[in-house]
Design a protein around this nucleic acid. Structure first.
Length: 584
RNA sequence: GGCCCCGUAGCUCAGUUGGAUAGAGCGACAGAUUCCUAAUCUGUAGGUCGCAGGUUCGAAUCCUGCCGGGGUCACCA
């Protein structure tokens, strides 16, 4: 359970009683009342801002109101101390039993501890990766892939019904370029000397396989034909081939999406016409000429009438084109159709994970979603900043042309998928991330992957030693939950339990903010608290986990060890990282 | 020029959706350390939260304007 939410309900309950008794005006809004762990541990276990938030609407002084509420809270069974502090905070100290109960709860629930019904089964769509099917995935793609995947896991953890989705951009000019590039490799596969890959086509070697496969399937039937004849077939073949590549890379990274939506299929099925009809019926389209961008007019700018969507009515800066000058749909038109499709499939809440270079596109799409869902849908776009791939502090220079390009696959082969996944979550999505191939393999405290994994491994190690050396102690979690937990009175032990008890709250706030990186920082803190406790046992033998002369105390300590392992494992599970049981 | 993101300790970054005396790791400095469950530990110093206003009981957090860095800018995807 989320202890803080539990006590917030209690505080609100007391406030309602005060209102009932005439001590407070009726009908106050308690939404801004919070119950949180105080920043300073010395201030107690729980802190509420209720008096400060309500003082004004209640027409009372914050401290007076705080005293009145504090008097009531002090009478609660679980509360052992209450004080009014600062401008009107109420700090509560809880009886230790509350904390021991949390520990027992973790042991009974295992890695399910922290699951909640916050999402109430609401359907959420998380769309991520959605890389153009024109080549293998890069480290940059991996960031979006991992952020999206972890966010999906996080939302599922707190009770949302999550669909993980990939949008295949298989309808624009880039896939025509892909088709021409593949056709060249096809000719090569059939023995032709194709020389240098011309400017504007994809030079990557990975297309050689595609060319060979096409030659193997179709023989020479496309040779010497007009482009118009072979292009559709070759294009689809190349797209399928590239998507196989992408899926294999995602699989290697441990990412498995539920739905792959094809832009081409959506457009072919009339999705865009439907969008157009919807917008036209509401008077949201017109044919007009856009102003050139101020300050920087493109060389080839010319005023041109276009079919436009009235995006400015929904928060965008300018109206946006739905049709290109050659009469074909813009990418945006297809994306509108896609988002309408998602909404109609039952997703009022949509999250898209994009690269930061798409930042200029966010308002366009959110305003589009507002229009298409008539305000009932919500789109949150998470932008992932660049990843700087480094090796021992040196930036790994990457250039597609010079062939020094490092693929995601190569990186995973070098450091492993778990490392890649964890590191991608050690920064906020909108901050750039340094990924140093040397540093991520170091076994030190400044390498969070190691530090967190080692915490889990160390817990497992302690439990293994316990099994070997103290066979009298029953190690199954339920037995441990029934041990004398109230003997855990050292400050380090209590701090660790309190940190573990914050897990459900952390999950809910991270999920609410759509910020999976918070889980990584929590795990790092948790690992620090655990390692600190372990170290205390080095200095003071009485604080060791395993005390052969005191099986009861050992059981209580092992309860803490096992609970820590559960929470670390459950955090890593959200990240799709396998918790290791030993590191040798 | 418009829009978006970033600016916090020497470095890399957190900061619980507006809370109390702004935190962590590294680095620096000062100590401890064959003890064991497996990769040392403790302490100290270090800050005008880019700058200036505003909102209020209270601002690193919200608003406005500047400064600096990055991204992006009609028909690419």
């Amino acid at each position: 359970m989320n202890l803080f939410k539990y006590f917030k309900d209690i505080v609100v309950g007391e406030l309602e009683q005060m209102a009932g008794a005439g001590e407070l005006p009726a009908g106050l809004d308690y939404a801004r009342v919070t119950v949180e762990p105080p920043r300073e541990r010395g201030h107690g276990d729980l802190s509420t801002n209720a008096a400060m938030v309500l003082a004004k609407p209640a027409g009372r002084k914050p401290r007076d109101l705080a005293e009145a509420l504090a008097a009531r809270l002090g009478k609660l069974d679980d509360v052992t101390g209450v004080e009014v502090a600062g401008p009107g905070f109420i700090n509560l100290r809880l009886v230790p039993g509350v904390w021991y109960a949390r520990l027992a709860e973790i042991l009974k629930e295992g890695t399910a501890y922290g699951d909640s019904d916050m999402g109430a089964g609401e359907a959420v769509n998380v769309e991520y990766v959605s890389a153009n099917p024109t080549g293998p995935l890069t480290v940059g793609h991996a960031r979006g892939a991992v952020v999206g995947d972890a966010l999906a896991g996080l939302l599922a953890k707190v009770g949302y019904k999550v669909t993980k989705e990939y949008y295949i951009n298989d309808a624009g000019g880039q896939v025509d370029t892909l088709a021409r590039s593949a056709y060249l490799r096809y000719r090569e596969a059939l023995g032709e000397d194709i020389g240098e890959i011309p400017e504007g086509l994809y030079p990557g070697d990975y297309l050689k396989e595609t060319g060979k496969a096409l030659a193997a399937r179709d023989g020479d039937k496309w040779l010497g034909k007009d482009e118009a004849e072979w292009l559709p077939e070759v294009r689809q073949f190349a797209i399928d081939s590239m998507m196989d590549l992408v899926r294999a890379d995602l699989d290697f990274l441990g990412v498995h999406q539920d739905v792959f939506s094809s832009e081409r299929k959506l457009v072919a099925a009339g999705g865009v016409e439907e969008v157009l009809k919807f917008l036209e019926e509401r008077g949201l389209t017109y044919t007009g000429v856009l102003e050139p961008p101020k300050g920087k007019t493109p060389e080839d700018w010319e005023p041109r009438p276009q079919l436009l969507f009235k995006a400015t009515q929904f928060g965008d800066d300018v109206d946006r084109a739905l049709k290109k000058s050659d009469g074909s749909w813009t990418y945006f038109a297809g994306d509108m159709a896609y988002h309408l499709d998602k909404f109609r499939r039952g997703f009022a809440t949509m999250i898209n994970v994009w690269g930061a270079d798409h930042g200029g596109y966010v308002k366009r799409m959110t305003s589009g979603v507002k229009a298409l869902t008539e305000g009932k849908g919500d789109l949150d776009v998470k932008l992932c900043q660049l990843v700087n791939l480094k090796r021992g502090g040196e930036l790994v220079k990457m250039s597609k042309r010079s062939g020094t390009f490092v693929t995601l696959r190569e990186v995973i082969e070098e450091v492993g998928k778990d490392v890649v996944r964890f590191i991608m979550l050690t920064r906020k999505n909108d901050a750039t991330l340094d990924f140093d191939l040397v540093e991520v393999m170091e076994q030190s405290r400044d390498n969070p992957v190691f530090y967190v994994q080692y915490c889990h491994a160390r817990c497992c190690s302690v439990l293994r030693h316990a099994a070997a050396e103290m066979p009298g102690v029953s190690l199954d979690p339920v037995s441990l939950a029934g041990s004398d937990l109230n003997r855990l009175t050292d400050s380090g032990e209590l701090d660790l339990i309190k940190l573990l008890a914050e897990w459900p709250r952390l999950l809910e706030s991270a999920a609410d903010a759509h910020e999976p990186h918070r889980v990584a920082f929590y795990l790092y803190d948790l690992a620090g608290a655990f390692h600190g406790l372990w170290t205390k046992g080095k200095d003071n033998a009485e604080l060791r986990f395993l005390l052969p002369d005191d099986p009861a105390m050992t059981a209580a300590r092992l309860a803490l060890v096992q609970a820590t392992a559960f929470v670390i494992a459950s955090g890593l599970e959200i990240f799709g990282v396998t918790p290791v049981e030993e590191m040798r």
